[in-house]
Amino acid sequence: MTIGARVLKTGLAVALAIYLSELFGFPSPIISSIAAISIQPSISRSWQNTVDQLQTNVLGAILGLAAIKLFGQTAISVGLVCIIVIMICIKLRMEATIALTLVTVVVIMESDGQGWWFAAERFFQVLTGMGAAFAVNLLIFPPRPRKQFNDQVHEAFDELSLLLRMAISNELKEDVHRKEKEKLVGTLRKLEERYTLFEEERSLLPSRRQARARQLLISKQHIKALQQGADLLEAVEEHYFAAPEAGKWAKQFDDQIEDLTKYHEQILLKLEGKLKNGASFEPPEEREARLAMQLTEYLIQDPDERKRLVFVGSAVFEYAFHLRRLERLADQVMQRDAEGAERGAD
């Protein structure tokens, strides 16, 4: 079991919140500590969470004090204010702030009517905890969505490559295949989440915003290509082995998938700058055209029984299409980045 960065930073944020509570002379560090348990997976989300928490906690404090003045300090009034706060947070799409805002409401309404100064002190405790969390997230192992995204792209490709290369030959043990496929599905899901974090990041400089927009475009195509590879794997498993005379097509499909898998790998290497300039590795489209023609002739002979292999062929062609699009985008992004570097040098 490994300790992730967010786990470590949460502990550090709580420790810092307690230290600051003692430094500022707060009667108890509990509220600050609870507020510090808000480490987010990106700086952008961390800042947005801080802003949202400030808004909803101010609102909760005002509603709590108003309820005490109007209805007094009763269990029913506390419950009603909590319901109202929850409804407002949901309406404002700030559901993540509900728990801490309710803590603020309950503490203020259970304060025996000590008034605005008590509410302000509790608010500053919340602010201290959120500030500690934001500072720790910003200064200690700050999230790097782009690097994390690229690492997960390689992880997803490694898992996909193994499964695709063994798909037609069906040489993997069933339990191994199942585990590897589950890993691939999980990695693709994490990749979508990582892309969302990457998309939320903001750049202040115009030049950086343009470079980031290009990276977002190619990142989206990375996901599309990997997902299409996973769809090809599904098509092979569902249709290839159920197709009549599938064995006669084994070498053609196996060679085609091997070429595309290698092509995918070389695109990733190209983006990392590990290939020689001018290296050409795109699979010949003539082979795909020949396979399409052969599948068409094969289908015409018996459309009802032989359409399964056409589904597999279609998935192969779709995977190839998105890989070529990925390479074109890679070339454009690398060219624009090189031009930007030259302008910066001048």
Rank of each mutant, 00 (worst) to 15 (best):
A246C: 15
V14W: 06
D302F: 08
F71P: 04
A13C: 00
T10Q: 00
L271H: 13
P142L: 06
K274D: 13
L92K: 14
L309W: 15
D112E: 15
G131R: 05
K91P: 10
I39C: 00
I300M: 11
R328C: 03
A250H: 08
K173F: 09
C82Y: 11
Y19C: 04
A242I: 13
R122P: 09
T261N: 12
E238P: 09
I68V: 15
E237K: 08
E258Q: 12
A320H: 05
N49H: 12
G113R: 07
T74F: 05
R209F: 10
G113I: 06
L59Y: 07
G313Q: 12
K173W: 13
P283E: 02
D254T: 03
S77N: 09
T97H: 02
T74E: 04
V51M: 12
G247C: 01
G131M: 05
E121D: 14
L275K: 02
L65G: 03
E245N: 15
E171D: 12
W116S: 14
F141T: 14
D302V: 06
P284M: 10
F149K: 11
L16G: 09
F123I: 00
R308K: 12
I31R: 11
K224E: 13
A341E: 01
P27I: 14
S203F: 11
E327Y: 10
L162F: 10
E238Q: 15
E245Y: 14
L191S: 12
K248I: 09
Y19P: 01
P244F: 02
L163W: 10
Q125E: 15
V7P: 04
D337Q: 09
E342H: 14
R325W: 05
T50E: 08
L326G: 04
N137T: 04
T97A: 03
A120R: 08
A17R: 01
E245G: 13
E282A: 06
L20M: 14
G131F: 05
R209P: 03
D259P: 02
I62R: 01
V85H: 01
Q73G: 03
L326F: 03
E234F: 09
A242Q: 15
L100R: 13
K248L: 11
L233N: 04
L63V: 04
L139F: 07
D151T: 11
I76T: 15
R93T: 07
L92P: 02
L20N: 08
M1F: 00
F118Q: 06
N49A: 03
E201H: 08
A119S: 08
V107C: 08
E318S: 02
S77T: 07
P41C: 06
I88Y: 06
F141W: 15
